[in-house]
Design a protein around this nucleic acid. Structure first.
Lengths: 176, 176
DNA sequence: ACCTGAACACCGTTCAAGT
DNA sequence: ACCTGAACACCGTTCAAGT
């Protein structure tokens, strides 16, 4: 019967992430989080500094999960691009927390952000500038898609194909 | 002495927009908004349904302002792209409200969204798919820039130039 | 029609107090 | 060390009451 509670930073992060996945960040309160952990809100402050630190924990875990998947997602740029979209659509509530909120860098594991950025640069073929324009495009398209800012009849399949061929063309032009 | 108050939907929109420009959406409360208008919070509900409707008013006004500028911003695609960035950087707190929040379409002036989307399609040369990939890139890059998600030493000048030449190349490839 | 004070159910956070 | 109830200053929103 008795569920192991064992509240610590890890279980706080896991539970917060689960709640965000289900209902979005905006509905994650210190009271609901505490309740899901079987304690009261003030007790959370024995484990984390404040709500921002909870968000930072989730950002770190999300970035790690994304990075792991991205690193092994096929070998071609096409594979990486499609993985990016797939991860975002599979984690629609988590995506904005990990990729849109201002990063609280001092609270992130050392080197985690640089590591993920490095993966993107690799996927872009080594150019930092191309990496940025590619990342911007993936991020922007995913954001517009998640926020429902595109026409409902928009042909997203073709749009993503255009992103891929467009990027490959830029890459080729950049090598000359 | 006595300042003309004249509270109505227009003055509510203007004041809310001003407060958002200064301090961001997250600090716009019905109480602070009311105070800035010289009334109490409950009185706002005689003019608008709720806070979401205030946001929708600002979205509409912001979209209109952006559209007006974009329409007359030079003739080349390059001009349009640079205007997009410039508008975003000039309105850093407003930008996410207008271009990132879920649009409350039923509260927007009729045809406003379609009008702005049409301007983007025109700027992209008429192709809906190219318009979407271009818009995504501009939106994504602006968002990464505003959120400080890019390395501090990132060469943004060159990055935007790459966006422009990359888009022009795609446009050319698309015409064949 | 437009405004008010009081109230409701929420927030994040602090603090004294318990074990 | 970890947890609690009570409290603070905030939210959005409703409502009876005033003009």
């Amino acid at each position: 019967m008795s569920a192991r509670k064992m509240v610590n930073r890890q279980s706080i992060c896991d539970t917060a992430m689960q709640l965000i996945r289900l209902h979005g960040v905006e509905s994650l309160s210190m009271r609901t989080l505490a309740a899901a952990l079987g304690i009261k809100a003030p007790s959370l402050y024995d484990h984390v500094k404040n709500r921002d630190e909870v968000i930072a924990l989730v950002q770190g875990a999300g970035l790690l999960d994304f990075g792991d998947g991205f690193a092994v997602a096929g070998t071609t740029t096409r594979d990486k691009i499609l993985f990016y979209r797939q991860w975002a659509l599979a984690n629609p509530k988590l995506y904005p927390v990990v990729f849109q909120q201002r990063l609280q860098r001092e609270l992130l594991p050392d080197g985690l952000e640089a590591n993920v950025l490095g993966l993107v640069v690799d996927a872009a073929g080594g150019s930092h500038i191309l990496a940025r324009t590619m990342w911007a495009q993936l991020h922007g398209l995913v954001d517009l898609e998640l926020q429902g800012r595109l026409p409902v009849d928009a042909d997203m399949q073709s749009t993503w194909e255009q992103v891929i061929v467009g990027f490959e063309a830029n890459q080729k032009a950049n090598m000359t």
